[in-house]
């Protein structure tokens, strides 16, 4: 499969379970080395580059299953990302200031001294986003940041996504919540069995017969997953 992600847009990636969405993210962020193919970021070949270096180039991600540093405080979690992210801030005081900005953006600034372990799932999801944002990415890959959230939490997350876009950050977004993804995305790419099935605006995707078939199945009558 091959695709481009235009700058400063929200590009959605959807597909049935096991289509390869998370694998795609892992390939782009360097968690997995591709066995073939090329990945370019801002005109540079970044194929096979490790995660830590990609972060310094401006590519950050969140995980579908949250991975906060449980025994660090909320502030420490985000502060670390400022220190080691693209900005590579050296001084602790300056790093904490930047960290507070990210935490304010996701609405966690009142819980900075809590251990990440004691946050609720919704809060941990927001911490995950704040930590990725604190690396000052040019491209951020968000993997199901609304999974397991309530309707109101999801709405808040959509507002957050808009604010991230307004800061000029490009977003690649995987979500199973169709309503969320159809309303927020500029473009959508549909994956199925590791292949690109379709690509286009939300309206085009909704009316694409191949997509409908992948989701609802044909003769075998597979279970729709979203």
């Amino acid at each position: 499969m091959s695709f481009d992600v235009p700058e400063k847009q929200i590009c959605g990636f959807i597909g049935p379970n096991g289509a390869g969405k998370t694998t795609l993210f892992s390939l782009i962020t360097g968690a997995i080395r591709p066995s073939s193919g090329k990945i370019h970021f801002r005109g540079n070949d970044v194929t096979g580059m490790d995660s830590a270096r990609l972060v310094k180039k401006g590519v950050a991600r969140t995980h579908q299953i949250v991975r906060p540093f449980r025994q660090l405080t909320v502030l420490e979690n985000v502060q670390l990302a400022v220190h080691y992210g693209r900005r590579a801030v050296l001084r602790a005081a300056a790093a904490r200031e930047h960290a507070m900005e990210s935490l304010k953006l996701v609405g966690l600034d009142h819980k900075v001294n809590r251990l990440a372990a004691v946050l609720s799932l919704g809060e941990q999801k927001r911490l995950e986003v704040a930590r990725a944002l604190a690396t000052a990415p040019e491209l951020i890959l968000l993997d199901e940041i609304c999974g397991g959230l309530t309707a109101s939490e999801t709405r808040a997350m959509m507002g957050l996504l808009q604010r991230i876009r307004e800061t000029g950050t490009t977003i690649m977004y995987v979500e199973h919540d169709m309503k969320a993804i159809m309303t927020i995305c500029d473009r959508i790419t549909v994956l199925n069995f590791g292949q690109k099935l379709a690509e286009g605006t939300p309206a085009e995707i909704q009316n694409n017969p191949a997509v409908v078939e992948a989701y609802l199945g044909t003769s075998e009558g597979s279970v729709p997953s979203a």
């Binding site: 968690a31 490790d50 830590a52 991975r67 906060p68 660090l72 420490e76 220190h83 080691y84 990725a132």
Partner: peptide
């Protein structure tokens, strides 16, 4: 130091540390 903070993060989750730019 920030180095110490990075080490604590590595202890807890190496891959998550790499995801925010810390080279484990």
């Amino acid at each position: 130091s920030k180095f110490g903070l990075a080490l604590r993060a590595i202890k807890q989750d190496e891959d998550a540390a790499a995801d925010i730019g810390v080279n484990p």
